[in-house]
Amino acid sequence: MTTTAPGPGRSPTRERSAPPRRRQLTLRRRESRAGLALVAPTLLVTIAVIGIPIVWTVVLAFQRVRLATLRKTGLFGEFTMDNIDRVLHTPGFAETLWVTLIYSIGGTVGSIVLGLVAALVVRRPFRGRTLVRASMLLPYVAPVVAVTFVWQVMLDPQLGIVNAWGQRLLGWDAPVPFLTQESTALATVIAFEAWRYFPFAFLFLLARLQAVPGELEEAARVDGATPTQRFRHILLPQLLPVIALLGVLRFIMTFNKFDDVYLLTGGAAGTEVVSVRVYEFLTARTDIGAAAAQAVVLAVVLIVFVLIYLRFFGRRVS
């Protein structure tokens, strides 16, 4: 790293004697070398811990690998389509994909809507605003294991506070097992997702809202626009690019999500998303080939969705 960068002792005065065109070229070349030298460690580490694993997953997806035979299989054993075939034809595959899709769209829309409302209400200064803003970020920064536990306990049919109050105040006939019955589990998981990730949308939208020039709204107010009109015609158009970007980011992140669903329901009661299924293949069935194939299918489906999205909203996102 140190060899390519110019020594600190070299002064620009010495280069003044060279013709201007050549000097520019060498400066440029030196910059390029320094750039490559500085980025090399980052690039190498990224390739080692992320790039190679991704390629390897694809290779594994076409091999017959199980945990028991792992020590004997080489990197380039015989290739087979069995895994992909098995993944596509195992019962529940289509349902898992469908559940993942509903979960991702629900979680994305929920978190953005909540984040937008939150950003709008704390936009202007008021007493205690800093504290309110900080509290709103709590769900996002807190450890996932802890927050899923609290939700589980709160929603517990026997000792959860939600059911205790629901029965006492709202007159529910019987406790609702939110996370274990088919009719409510998926909706509850989506609600959790919206709750945990709205701060992410909130941060981005608040930053954008504060960058909207005050004169814009002032002018609209003078022209007689009411608050809702100002939101609809001044603020919303300014926010749309950020919302479109958040849409694609949150969708991708939710689509890949493992921890939240695994910890809340373990994938039971109709909430099995693709990544939980990959985990099941990997550990419970110790079928590495199938897990890899399932992961590849996940990545491909994701890429397709993102491409479709970019086709419709691409101009806004970029």
Binding site: I52, W56, T57, L60, S275, L282, I288, L298
Partner: peptide, 12 residues
């Protein structure tokens, strides 16, 4: 990129 995709080969 999905972390579960990276997890499999690292596991191996």
């Amino acid at each position: 990129f999905p972390s579960i995709v990276i997890a499999i080969p690292l596991f191996v």
